[in-house]
Write a protein that binds this DNA or RNA. Sequence first.
DNA 1: TGTACATCAGTGAACGCGCGTTCACTGATGTAC
DNA 2: TGTACATCAGTGAACGCGCGTTCACTGATGTAC
Lengths: 208, 208
Amino acid sequence: MTLKADTKGRILDIAEAAVLEKGFEATSIDEIVAAAQISRSGFFYHFKDKNALARAMLERYIETEDKLYDDLFARARELNDDPLHAMLIGLKMLAEMLEDMPEGHPGCVIAATAYQDRLFDKGVRELNRQAILGWRRRFRTMFEEIAAVYEPREPVDLDALGDMVSSVVEGGLVLQRALRESNTAAAQIMQLRTYLKLLFANPPPKAP
Amino acid sequence: MTLKADTKGRILDIAEAAVLEKGFEATSIDEIVAAAQISRSGFFYHFKDKNALARAMLERYIETEDKLYDDLFARARELNDDPLHAMLIGLKMLAEMLEDMPEGHPGCVIAATAYQDRLFDKGVRELNRQAILGWRRRFRTMFEEIAAVYEPREPVDLDALGDMVSSVVEGGLVLQRALRESNTAAAQIMQLRTYLKLLFANPPPKAP
DNA sequence: TGTACATCAGTGAACGCGCGTTCACTGATGTAC
DNA sequence: TGTACATCAGTGAACGCGCGTTCACTGATGTAC
């Protein structure tokens, strides 16, 4: 990994932005290498074919997103040790983050590839699937912790509730892109937050 | 519109299915005409170019979806004249409909094109935008009616709540596609339903 | 310190295939008088 | 009822351009002895 160049990372940045605007098939290697200021063969030095680019793009995106969630909810937990309040703080921070992006959040690579999955091999599709399942587990664990303290007011499937974080983000981003607004996704996260407040409104059974 | 043929409708059916699997650019006119059993030039008799296909596809999809919402929530309202309960019944029916599709719901054309919008002209993008805004208005009106009877327990932005129906459907479908499950979207709608139950749980102020 | 070789990060030219689109044409059905 | 013309729903061949991929090659840097 050279300091100055990092051509591979540059290619991935360019590809990601282009894929979110036009889709994978419509993003040509020619346009990528032109923007990255290398030759076509330079591209094939880094990626054996176009599918390898898709896989690398997804792997990097998932890693980044996982780390973001790790950091964000860890910080939230530092601010308040109660699992419910930590979750509410984390969602607020997530909403603020999305709203503060100058050009609006560009969208989610997972959603983009989910609607083009026949273009990719089984490995890429499985990567996508595992990412979503990972988020389900992540948030389910957090909701279990909350439900152990605050009894839910309505019966609730914790897997579905875990999925709801991803679902609301993905749905919000679809709407935001289609509307060409910049705060739709943040508003949807705030709705989820209100839902959780109402769902877990019962005070802890035993206050020490 | 010939009875036997309806070639144009057949083309749109085939194109829609293909676009949801691979995206618009990767769906070739050749594969469409092969499936529709006409020649390439037959395609260009019905659509002046590929962008016209996209527009027609979206127009038809939006019309179908609007009619579906019209029918579904009208039926729900017939079953219960209370606006809240009608909404809850409507959402349940929507969830059941999604869950009962044998192959799982194929996905939403709006979402697919939202992540490929640079491929289309301004007209198509605006069509997309207006569809989402139409759904926002539709559901906002219904929520206003509900809020006039049941005071919300938490302050809530009714535009965002209106968007939430689309958002949860879109998000659920993204997850469902990525997971290759068939009931994810339905489960998300049921979460929204629980949210609404909690949000509008206060009984009507004046029972007659 | 010098030399030999290996690896890294590319270049430039060429390939053939598939794509969207155009064009002149056609046979069946509908309409005017 | 017959004829002339128009419209509908296509066909078949050809077009040129852009795409992903391959191949032989290269100059700079790193490593072994």
